[in-house]
Design a protein around this nucleic acid. Structure first.
Length: 615
RNA sequence: GCACCCGUAGCUCAGUGGAUAGAGCAGCCGCCUUCUAAGCGGUCGGUCCCAGGUUCGAAUCCUGGCGGGUGCACCA
């Protein structure tokens, strides 16, 4: 019966149709019925039985319709052609929808999500924005779906990029410009250093190398930290928070490379060829996990004794899933929500009271699609060292690039756009619209921020990650149509009704005082059907690591609600008014609108988008 | 050359093997004496890249093409 109510799709047998015709574990797919067909939910179950019963599906459906006992809450079961459709009792259905929880129960499984991981050497740009927004939405979705989530931001403080920016500051030796955000300024010096290489290449190369060595020793941590803190201001402005910063130099110091190698060398698939092109190197045979590869051997340690980057990455990921220990932790900052941001630190504590870092049952990496190959190797290594784990230890959320008006972004060519710039413009544009539409609103600044940032984030989330996004201002900051403001507006409308209602009744689930559920009809059922989809949407999005599923649902629910709100009866007059409805019906509608509002807000929150009460 | 991803309305995109493939934008026509018109209704617009195959049923699964993007791994 639950299946009919939740539109969850296939369930095990047990539903009445199965029992009636002696098919035990029958798969009964359930789907929403198109608007022009009778019924609310329907099933093509008769198709599957046609062969075994040697009857045509329409006959089977007709027979089932007469045999099936009406479960509670179902008004009617009828055959519509070959489909078996049920019409729900509006009152009990809407009531059950209103009472359903929005968040999933805890699952006792931990997911370690890594996102952002921007090189600490320049300001973050809109390409990074996609990563950050995707990762943050994913973290929120997984939490709502019942998982314990830890968000890590990896800081590559020993890389060439950080070294170049830090060296550029020394090289040009200019005083810091007043009022300029530090990461923007260093980004500019970084680009200038690239240009200066043409005339002064050797000296610059020597200087950068020296800085790299200093970074490896950890001597310049303060310099990196300063850039990082400037970048974190940007993420904070987006409403994004992290649990832990993991510094590459700390990963190196913890010996994850060496200790990871010890784990790997115990594998039968890891060995040192004595001849052939890999003679002298340490290689891993991945053919069992990555079939169809032209070259099934992956080099872990080169014949000159130097480890490959991917090998360090494997060590790091062994730590993420709890198979290596050894980082030390220290508090780094207090974030806007009040939550502490922790960092790995050479002089930190190995235990933090009340927290256990890493030890994920699964790791998810938000990294661009060009990294599929190395990510697959890391995953394969984890699978091989784990024996036969039935769950994937690592998932790569691969997203495509963001181009700028059709051009690939490139700092050196000046084809780039800072997130800070985009945020400012997004809020500016939103503010202009708010001031025009609702000038007497007391919270204009807050609403402009919620709407502008919402539009920006939503634009990055509404399509599948594997699609290329071409950033264009009008499109990215659109405040109409398939956008966050569309959903936010629907939410504000519902809030407006609930404000008015609060003066007469207090909606509190189906216990709303004075509600007469029997007065509800097909219009409410249609709206409630959309609300009822939420748990399965959340589940599917979490399962597939696909925030766009939530974004698309938010649009669908807003559309259903707007349609209900504006509905007119045969006489051309509005027939869904809440506050003007007769007593009893009014209270039942208030309860439903309350659920719609809460669901819209919850879905938006799962995407990291605010839902203003007024706009 | 090999591998991965993409190809759906003029444009940007949804579409867990099921009912007549849907939105937004753009175009055209309507709707504020009604709880927010950032909205709603209507209209125009489709060889779901092509060809085979599997299936009662394919935009969806399989094979082979074509077109575009990305990667090619003793680089980080």
């Amino acid at each position: 019966m639950r299946a009919f109510l939740t539109d969850r799709g296939a369930t095990e047998g047990g539903a009445a149709p199965g029992a009636a015709i002696d098919v035990g574990a029958l798969d009964i797919p359930v789907q929403s019925v198109p608007d022009d067909k009778p019924g609310d939910y329907g099933s093509p179950v008769a198709f599957g039985l046609a062969r075994a019963l040697r009857m045509n599906p329409a006959q089977i459906a007709a027979a089932l319709a007469t045999l099936v006992e009406l479960p509670e809450g179902v008004k009617r079961i009828e055959a519509v052609g070959p489909y078996l459709n049920v019409e729900l009792d509006p009152g009990s259905f809407v009531r059950s929808v209103v009472d359903a929880p929005l968040a999933a129960p805890p699952r006792r499984r931990k997911i370690v999500i890594e996102h952002t991981s921007v090189n600490p050497n320049k300001e973050a740009h809109v390409g990074h924005l996609r990563n950050i927004v995707l990762g943050d939405a994913l973290a929120r979705i997984e939490r709502a779906a019942g998982y314990e989530v830890e968000v890590q931001n990896y800081i590559d403080d020993t890389g060439r990029q950080a070294a170049e920016s830090i060296f550029a500051r020394r090289y040009f030796d200019e005083s810091e410009p007043e009022g300029r955000k530090y990461d923007h300024w260093l980004g500019e010096l970084y680009v200038r250093l690239g240009q200066a290489k043409e005339t002064d290449g050797e000296a610059i190369e020597a200087g950068v190398t020296e800085v790299m060595h200093a970074l490896e020793r950890g001597d310049l941590r303060g310099e990196v930290e300063r850039i990082l803190r400037a970048q974190l201001v940007t993420y904070g402005a987006l409403g994004v928070e992290y649990d832990l910063l993991v510094w590459e130099s700390d990963v190196v110091a913890a010996g994850f490379l060496r200790r990871g190698l010890e784990v790997l060398e115990a594998l039968p698939t890891v060995f040192r060829p004595t001849q052939g092109k890999f003679a002298g190197a340490l290689v891993m045979d991945v053919s069992a996990f990555m079939p169809g590869l032209e070259e099934p051997l992956v080099v872990l340690v080169r014949s000159d004794g130097n480890a490959m980057y991917v090998t360090k990455d494997i060590g790091y990921h062994l730590w993420k899933v709890g198979r290596l220990e050894g980082l030390r932790y220290a508090p780094f900052a207090v974030q806007a929500s009040g939550a502490t941001l922790w960092t790995s630190a050479p002089d930190g504590e190995s235990e933090v009271a009340g927290r256990t870092f890493a030890h994920g049952d699964q790791a998810v990496n938000v990294i661009d699609a060009r990294q599929v190959h190395p990510q697959t190797i890391v995953r394969t290594a984890l699978q091989m060292t784990a024996g036969d784990a039935d769950i994937e230890p690592l998932h790569h959320l691969a997203y495509e690039v963001v181009t700028l008006e059709g051009q690939a972004m490139s700092g050196r060519k000046g084809v780039t756009l800072a997130i800070d710039t985009v945020i400012e413009e997004a809020i500016r544009r939103a503010r202009a619209v708010v001031e025009e539409k609702n000038p007497e609103l007391a919270t204009i600044a807050d609403v402009a921020r919620a709407v502008g940032l919402g539009a920006l984030r939503f634009g990055m989330l509404k399509s599948e990650a594997r699609r290329v996004i071409d950033f264009r201002w009008e499109q990215a900051l659109s405040l109409a149509g398939d956008s966050a403001p569309y959903v936010q507006y629907a939410h504000a409308r519902a809030s407006s009704i609930l404000r008015a209602a609060a003066e007469t009744v207090v909606p509190e689930g189906s216990r709303t005082a004075g509600a007469d559920w029997s007065l509800l009809g097909p219009l409410e059922v249609r709206l409630a059907r959309e609300v009822a989809r939420w748990p399965s949407v959340l589940d599917a999005a979490a399962e597939a690591d696909a925030p766009h599923v939530v974004a698309q649902y938010a649009l669908d629910l807003a559309t259903a609600w707007n349609g209900y709100y504006n509905h007119r009866g045969p006489n051309g007059k509005p027939d869904t008014s809440v506050m003007r409805a007769e007593s009893g019906l009014r209270e039942a509608r208030i309860a439903l609108v309350g659920k719609v509002r809460a669901t819209l807000a919850f879905a938006l929150d799962s995407l990291g988008i605010e839902a203003p009460e007024q706009m």
